[in-house]
Write a protein that binds this DNA or RNA. Structure first.
Lengths: 136, 136
DNA sequence: CTTGATCGTTATCGGCAATAGCAATATGGA
DNA sequence: TCCATATTGCTATTGCCGATAACGATCAAG
């Protein structure tokens, strides 16, 4: 069957992202985490007391969509919300959150290593810079 | 704000795919098309009489999800279904489908060109091969 | 002190993909 | 030729991610 689509970089980008996202979702799912939850945990770990809005800005997740995400993390006992002033809430990892993030970090680092290993050596170093140019 | 995530190729891949997909969706939306609909039209154009299952396999879209997609294309007058035997339906573009696909092709080619233009020249040739290694 | 921006939140929607199941048909081996 | 098996198109439902619009409350700057 004749298929001209794979010759388009944009198409290949979407296919590659879908394929790898599915794999990461499956690996993180074993820990009860979604990719977006892992990303949020990472940012909260590196920036204790950050606000939900700030995390959302960094991850390009709308404020409105942060709410259920953080609710899941909070009711799972991974993060805590603490009032910074009358309006903002600071986010912090709980001990359990640190524990789970530790495991997730290993999973993600293994995943990223597998990803790079799949890319032929002569293209490997170019992947990240090329991708960054597309969204940064 | 400290953010270690952009250093992960997998993360950059998802961000780049999201950003570019949003842009393509916006450009194709002006023609009343979604990305998945454009992909299907392309395959049908190149393979007149293909079956929905075959298109789904090529695009990695489940049979079940092809149904509403093709229904939209058919009720929009872009494709026609013709019985191949008692079980399978062959898909063909209508004249209108060819006309719209012609416009969409230009939109997509301009989009892909813009995409590549954003990638620094020294990385450009490596993008497609690297991406293909991740899903092919 | 007022005006405008920001915060967290609710509710709702759209696009894409996954799963399970079903009736009808096609196909290949006994 | 008959039958088990695979395939086709389809329904119905679910999940994830993202987008939009709106709200009250609060903060910050003029």
């Amino acid at each position: 069957m004749h298929d001209p689509l794979p010759a388009f970089p944009g198409y290949a980008l979407r296919r590659a992202a879908n394929a790898t996202a599915a794999e990461l979702a499956s690996r993180l799912g074993a820990l009860g985490l979604r990719q977006s939850e892992f990303s949020a945990l990472m940012l909260i770990a590196e920036n204790p007391g950050v606000t939900a809005s700030a995390v959302g800005r960094a991850l390009d997740i709308q404020r409105a969509n942060m709410v259920p995400l953080l609710n899941r993390l909070e009711s799972g006992g991974l993060i805590a919300r603490r009032p910074l002033d009358g309006k903002s809430l600071g986010l912090d990892l709980t001990d359990e959150g640190r524990r789970v993030l530790g495991q997730a970090r290993q999973v993600v680092e293994a995943f990223e290593a597998d990803l790079l290993a799949r890319v032929p050596a002569q293209h490997r170093a170019h992947l990240l810079p090329a991708l960054e140019a597309l969204w940064r």
